[in-house]
């Protein structure tokens, strides 16, 4: 099974300003890997446990968590953007869990 490298831009995971260099990480996947798995890999790397608050975006289109990478017909070096769908909830949970 051929593998593919997906680049994830996680600069905006905490909703910070985007004036400076972006933050990227490479994730190695196979066509069977789901979008959910890619997202969780990056969130685990960042030690963020709130998986339900995040989604991946490609060309400003929100990707379905259950879709497989193979079904999306990505080119060799695709860049996905990791985004939070509710920053208020994120910070509220971080406070609740004594992370802030």
């Amino acid at each position: 099974m051929s593998s593919l490298t997906i680049i994830v831009d996680y600069s905006n995971v905490y909703g910070g300003r985007q004036r400076f260099p972006k933050n990227f990480i490479e994730v190695n996947v196979t066509p069977d890997t789901t979008v959910d798995k890619v997202k969780n890999t990056v969130l685990n790397y960042l030690n963020i446990p709130y998986f339900d608050l995040y989604y991946l975006e490609f060309n400003k289109q929100k990707l379905d968590d259950q879709q497989s990478v193979g079904s999306l017909n990505f080119s060799k070096k695709v860049v996905l953007v990791l985004k939070c769908n509710n920053l208020d909830e994120l910070y509220s949970r971080m406070r609740r869990d004594r992370r802030l």
């Binding site: 600069s11 985007q18 004036r19 400076f20 260099p21 972006k22 933050n23 990227f24 990480i25």
Partner: peptide, 9 residues
């Protein structure tokens, strides 16, 4: 080193 540049000047 694993490539997490900071969003700062």
């Amino acid at each position: 080193y694993r490539g997490a540049p900071l969003n700062a000047s």
